[in-house]
Design a protein around this nucleic acid. Structure first.
Lengths: 153, 153
DNA sequence: AAAAACCCTGTAGCGGCTATAGAGTCAAGC
DNA sequence: GCTTGACTCTATAGCCGCTACAGGGTTTTT
């Protein structure tokens, strides 16, 4: 099948498939005479695997690790389990951070419960004072816990 | 004061300050003879404001809105309140999403409770099956709800 | 006078896509 | 057989909010 059909059956955009190939997540596809990529069931299975992992918010690096296990079926799967455990921990951590953030925001919101002149708005005043807003628990350096702001999947 | 001192007292990196200037969050600074930026208390206050907002995970666009209110003190602050309300909603939504995600991940983790050959690992098998992983609630299109994976603040 | 510390501009990179531009390929309808 | 349109190709730039260079200039300290 061609890339468009693969995209249709896996629900992944054509450009994203090409991107995954560039990134080495999908093996380089064979080509037709006219230089079109051709795919088989194998590709579609692998792509579904990737898609499932992405739905679970894994990074491409994490997926690369899982794919290596998938590609060596005789190996021990302990690494899979611990990768998942750590990923779960990231998610749990992030939930905790966001709960704190929510709390801070609600407290801040309390400081202005009417609409008035901006000059007297409690929120703006709080935000203006330095060190008024306490630091939230730091996100990890390794880039593995992201923002609440996110583009659509 | 020069940019380095401003960075020190606000806790914001030098490059970030220059970035904020480029982005129009900070007014363009005056210069010394040697072409160094010079700053006053006003700048440091404004920068602290921005820093507080960033600690609360607001986007630069949101901060731009708040700054406009700060710059027109006679205006009604209702817009501030509703911006905050919406931001809180984003955070709450994201917490809900992450809780679902956590649940999915824990269920998946259950499917392999021992270390064995990767070929028989329940996790890898589950991930391989298409549509086995249900779609999480979609993140918003407007780019306002992000990943759990995040670079350090 | 040399060295260190600071500052400047400009550009590229991060992740995970997404969205063009500009060109080529292929199947269906006239 | 010729046009139209749907599909495909590569290459490049953009998203966010920084961060990290390179390659230079200026100021301060030794």
């Amino acid at each position: 099948m061609k890339i468009g059909e693969l995209a249709r059956i896996t629900g992944i955009q054509v450009e994203t498939i090409r991107y995954y190939e560039r990134e080495g997540l999908l093996p380089v596809a064979g080509r037709t005479e006219g230089n079109y990529r051709i795919y088989s069931e194998d590709h579609s299975e692998r792509l579904s695997f990737i898609r499932n992992c992405r739905k679970l918010d894994m990074t491409l690096d994490e997926i690369r690790v899982l794919l290596r296990f998938k590609d060596s079926p005789q190996e021990n799967c302990g690494g899979v389990n611990s990768l998942l455990d750590e990923h779960i921990r990231h998610v749990t951590d992030r939930i905790g951070e966001l709960r704190q953030l929510e709390q801070h925001l609600r407290e801040l919101r309390q400081t202005c419960n009417k609409t008035q002149e901006a000059a007297h708005c409690g929120i703006l005043n709080e935000l203006t004072q330095s060190n008024r807003v306490s630091e939230d628990r730091k996100h990890r350096i390794d880039g593995h816990v992201r923002n609440i702001h996110k583009t659509a999947v």
